[in-house]
Amino acid sequence: MELLELREVCKTYHLGELDLQVLKGVSLSVAKGELVALMGASGSGKSTLMNILGCLDRLSSGEYWLDGQEVSDASANERARLRNRLIGFVFQSFNLLARTSALDNVSMPLTYGTEFVSEDEMKARAVEMLRKVGLADRMHHQPSQLSGGQQQRVAIARSLINRPRLLLADEPTGNLDSRTSEEILQMFRDLNEKEGLTVILVTHDPEVARHAKRTIRIRDGLIAGGPEIKREEIQK
């Protein structure tokens, strides 16, 4: 069953006189429980696509079906609610709140939920998430007191607190060394395999993409299908 589907999605940035078309008719679908890697050269539009998938940005044309709902013309507030309910984000630069404990960082998204969660439940859920990412003994540490890998794990715990359907990670290991990257990627795989969470990873590292079951390549604003790429490689 499809969790999300893009049909002929275009995204154009207007820079003064100049129109810059970054996505030129992207169509793709991702089923529930998939672990997908999104690859492509720098500037090919990976982050742009992720922003659209994450309901952070609006598309210029096309359709976006998320969880059985057409969301391409949702208002800013509707998109905020969708993000809160369905999507978890993991960023390359962690984006944790400074001088705030891991616990408070993790429970922060619950503040903006539509249903009311009591203070105690917020804490219990944050503790549970931190335990899941192996940071039960670092709950009261602030980001500056944690290593890069630990910070990224806090960020993953934060992205999971709302029990999202879709986890979007834009270069989640870009700032980490290879061993820590391996740990983080293993965590995504566990989440995907054990809990059936749909994960989309952006990366340009083939080593990272190796963890994924499917790789989507993007080139010049268009999806380059796996087989075609293979054919190109053969031609080379």
Partner: peptide
């Protein structure tokens, strides 16, 4: 600014 962006990404509406 980044904090505000993050809060919005996890679901804060502009009113929040």
């Amino acid at each position: 600014t980044r904090e505000i962006g993050l809060r919005m990404a996890v679901g804060a509406q502009s009113g929040d």
